[in-house]
Design a protein around this nucleic acid. Structure first.
Lengths: 136, 136
DNA sequence: TACTACTCTACTAAATTAATAGACTAATAA
DNA sequence: TTATTAGTCTATTAATTTAGTAGAGTAGTA
């Protein structure tokens, strides 16, 4: 399951995608539109900015906005940045790989199943973008 | 990511699948073969028994064994029994559904994406069985 | 009837997740 | 140039989940 934090992140990104072209959006506006605790959202947005998914503008008229057009950022990238691995096991993760301490990946039945699952999941999440997160 | 508990469960089930026809297997044997803390494994196996995935026999010559032939139990069923939902969000879970408090499922972009992901994942995990967990 | 092995309850420790508080810094517009 | 607005950052806390441990009890089998 995705963490609450990731759900908040995706909701916020969907909202910002829908407001793309409207200039910076206040944290407070996103928080109230999507019912996210404002301070928690603040840290999430900051994190996404460091990941170059978002940009921000300070001062009056400032706020957060997508660093690129909505269709340029995949949902997979967003999830990985907040939650980490998408795969169900570290030993089949492409971006957060870690070897199992005691099992041989060439003979491990579980490894094979989870690798297939990962592929099926990524086939979708690597194609979906922030544009697809816009409600409608 | 699957919890450690679920990983242990799947490893143990794979081991029992490989020993199907050999009669009951001792908890201690499974634990040492798969490097699982024995007391922790004990509680996992008991849980799987209550879920009718395993049976056990007490006394000398006793132990745990699969309640059905390996190909009769799906990996999806095993995961659900230990970890709970396979879907990435409760609002798209088939077996552990819970409504999001504030979003409309018909218009929610995230919901649609996650439902697709769930379908892709289940297409695999509902077909794979404990037989596929056997190392080789 | 003694031994073996599963059963069950309760507890604890560690890690992760979720959320909050508050001081600080930078940009903007008047 | 200064008041205001809004993002930045650090630290802390609370809640929940996960992982693992201990030990007494019960039941089946040879």
């Amino acid at each position: 399951m995705l963490s609450k934090k990731t759900q908040y992140a995706l909701k916020a990104l969907g909202y910002l995608a829908s407001k793309y072209n409207d200039g910076p959006v206040l944290i407070a506006e996103i928080a109230s539109a999507k019912e996210i605790p404002i301070k928690f959202l603040e840290s999430i947005l900051l994190h996404l900015k460091k990941a170059t998914i978002l940009n921000s503008k300070k001062g009056k008229g400032g706020g957060y906005y997508l660093a690129q057009p909505p269709k340029k950022t995949t949902v997979a990238k967003a999830i990985r940045n907040v939650d980490g691995p998408i795969a169900l096991l570290s030993c089949v993760s492409l971006n957060f790989y870690e070897k199992c301490k005691d099992c041989n990946e060439f003979t491990c039945g579980l490894n094979k199943i989870m690798a297939q699952t990962r592929d099926a999941t990524l086939k979708i999440l690597e194609k979906k973008t922030l544009f697809d997160l816009i409600d409608g």
